[in-house]
Design a protein around this nucleic acid. Structure first.
Lengths: 137, 137
DNA sequence: GTTCCTGCAAAATTTTTGCATCAGT
DNA sequence: ACTGATGCAAAAATTTTGCAGGAAC
């Protein structure tokens, strides 16, 4: 896996909790909370302390291997930064709290264009749309 | 103030803590955390319990008078939804944590277009760009 | 007078840290 | 062996809730 190599290069050791978190996240296509990662690992018979989950996420976010997503409910979620450049954003239902992904190339272009003219070296972005989903509306 | 009328119509009573929060936020142009609001009110000799600050923010967010902004540092921030339709998004420095505003009409258009085609009734959106600010880069 | 609002303190939730132990190099 | 990583439990930080007293209508 790409991400494990990057961790190597950054001086992190292999094996153990961090690897389990990386591998679980690698199998996801959308975001999970720290608690969901904790539960997922326990269900997969690879239990990891919740503190290690947070420490792993911290390192992964620093290395830009994982992106933090705040859906506005006070729970931080995390998803892999896919190596293949795939890129999506999030749609949150105000009623039921559901979080879904969407993507749009024109939106990406608009963001890239804006990001270039702000005096910041922008290396990440996130768009969250909030409203009522089809079921709740 | 516009917002106080909306609160009236929603059945909220005037006077007291909620009003103080509304008025303080009305004077801001960018986002403040609950603690900053609490401190700001205390400094203005209009102390309000922190629980009341949170309760007021909750009501204001429900009524869409205030927008919640998550800058990715685990602290929820809040800013007024300006009645004049002014609209901005946020730029967060990964190093120093500074949060700044920016706006771009073309980005707004791109978002509106995307939002219309997703099967959600989208009524709010937020864009957060993350990177290194001019000072930190 | 009734109902809603407020502040305080206590509780709940999410995240971080200290420390002894264990694993990778 | 040495150094970093892990798990547990305790702590910290943020947000929510219960309740008694006070304010608005």
């Amino acid at each position: 896996m790409q991400a494990l190599d990057t961790l190597d290069k950054a001086g992190y050791r292999r094996g153990g909790a961090r690897r389990a978190v990386v591998e679980l996240l690698g199998r996801q296509n959308c975001c999970l909370s720290a608690q969901e990662i904790f539960d997922g690992l326990r269900k997969a018979r690879r239990p990891v302390g919740i503190a290690s989950v947070y420490r792993a996420l911290d390192a992964l976010v620093d290395l830009r291997l994982v992106k933090r997503v705040d859906a506005g409910d006070g729970i931080a979620r995390f998803e892999p930064m896919s190596a293949d450049g795939e890129h999506h954003h999030h749609l949150v239902c105000r009623d039921c709290g559901k979080v879904e992904a969407f993507s749009d190339p024109r939106l990406e272009r608009a963001i890239d264009r804006v990001a270039g003219g702000l005096g910041y070296s922008v290396d990440e972005h996130e768009v969250v749309l909030t409203g009522a989903c089809a079921d709740c509306a």
